[in-house]
Amino acid sequence: MPAGAGAAVKGKTACVTGGNGYIASALVKMLLEKGYAVKTTVRNPDDMEKNSHLMELQALGPLEVLHADLDYEGSFDDALAGCDYAFLVAAPVNLTSENPEKEQIEPTVRATLNVLRSCLKAGTVRRVVLTSAASSICIAPLEGDGHVLDEHSWSDLDYVTAEKPPAWGYVISKVLAEKEAFRFAQDHGISLVVVCPVLTVGASPAPKACASVRASLSMLSGDEAALAMLKGIEKSFGAVPVIHLHDLCRAEVFLAEMATASSGRYICSSVGTTVVEIARFLAEQYPQYHVNIKQSGDDELLEKPRASLSSAKLVKEGFEFKYNTLDAIYGDVIEYGKALGILLRY
């Protein structure tokens, strides 16, 4: 095991923002299972429809659910007070806004800086782990095949602004939020790691399916809108890069605990595939769902990835992915989909 990994956590406290969400609730669960005391934030702690799964997680260890609002500076002061690590997962998402500048981009940058100011004020936070998205890396005109994108790659904001691909305001918001976060961290001596996950799938404590899970199951569920999202990812990314939720959470904790890990960005992607490859896999493994291997618009779909998002930097630090095949990745998401009513039970 690399030096600094698996550090003792007795007496350590971690804060996870947006704890009732898909990624954040899985991260809260993992931290509690590792022995951390956890403080997490939601907009309304009394809303049991959104937070009941957090109450259930309290059986695993000390979990405090606090009110905070991304729009207000100082709102996260109580949650971050006394914390050793901060996991910034919550972020504004408004993919259908008619005014992305005011309703997606500015709120995302403002929210990121608001939480970082609270981290600074706490004075105890050893490392901040900011969850961004791979869309900050790979939305750019890519000609030909064989592209390998790494942490030095940034989405081309001139291209995004001109072409306005789906959710273009979200793409810009992630790029600008990352850059402002790094500037703030450098100015104030904060140890900051940014994790850029790709399409994230897998079972979560959250009782509501996020868009990525719906997309990953779309060829089994018949959800055409979710399938369109999956095809849109392939078109924009030059592939369908996937990460299992458990591996993403493991990577975030690894990068927080690993004292020798360098600050900066880390791509989190374990499988690079295509819509066609996923269709073939699902048709073979789950014949009861009658997957249509010949997807509509096949002439535009890729037979093999044109681009790869490399997690070599993360692996070089000593991290090992546990879910690095489609079979492993889809193992629990099928049952999760059934439990949430997305998939029929056969």
Rank of each mutant, 00 (worst) to 15 (best):
L113F: 05
L113C: 04
L113H: 03
L113V: 10
N114A: 07
V115M: 08
V115D: 07
V115P: 14
L116F: 06
L116V: 09
L116P: 03
R117S: 10
R117D: 05
R117L: 08
R117G: 10
S118G: 07
S118R: 03
S118T: 13
C119L: 06
C119A: 11
C119R: 00
C119G: 02
C119M: 01
L120A: 04
K121M: 06
K121H: 09
A122D: 06
A122Q: 05
A122Y: 13
A122T: 13
G123Y: 04
G123F: 00
G123I: 00
V125C: 09
R126Q: 13
R126A: 10
R127S: 06
R127A: 10
R127L: 04
V128M: 10
V128L: 12
V128K: 06
V128N: 15
V128P: 05
V128D: 06
V128F: 07
V129N: 01
V129G: 01
V129F: 01
V129Q: 01
V129I: 14
L130H: 05
L130D: 03
L130F: 15
T131Y: 02
T131Q: 10
S132C: 05
S132Y: 10
A133R: 01
A133D: 14
A134W: 04
A134N: 13
A134M: 12
S135A: 14
S135Q: 14
S135H: 15
S135L: 11
S135E: 14
S135Y: 10
S136C: 15
S136D: 15
S136F: 14
S136E: 09
I137E: 00
I137L: 10
I137D: 02
I137A: 15
C138K: 05
C138S: 15
C138R: 04
C138P: 00
I139E: 08
I139H: 05
A140H: 14
A140N: 02
A140F: 15
A140E: 05
P141Y: 13
P141T: 08
L142H: 11
L142V: 01
L142M: 15
L142E: 07
L142G: 13
E143F: 09
E143G: 04
E143S: 11
E143Q: 13
E143N: 10
G144F: 12
G144P: 09
G144H: 13
D145K: 09
D145N: 12
D145L: 00
G146E: 11
G146H: 13
G146S: 12
H147L: 03
H147S: 04
H147E: 11
V148E: 09
V148R: 09
V148H: 05
L149K: 04
D150V: 00
D150W: 00
D150Y: 03
E151F: 02
E151C: 00
E151S: 07
E151G: 01
E151M: 01
E151N: 02
H152G: 13
H152Q: 11
H152F: 09
H152S: 13
H152V: 08
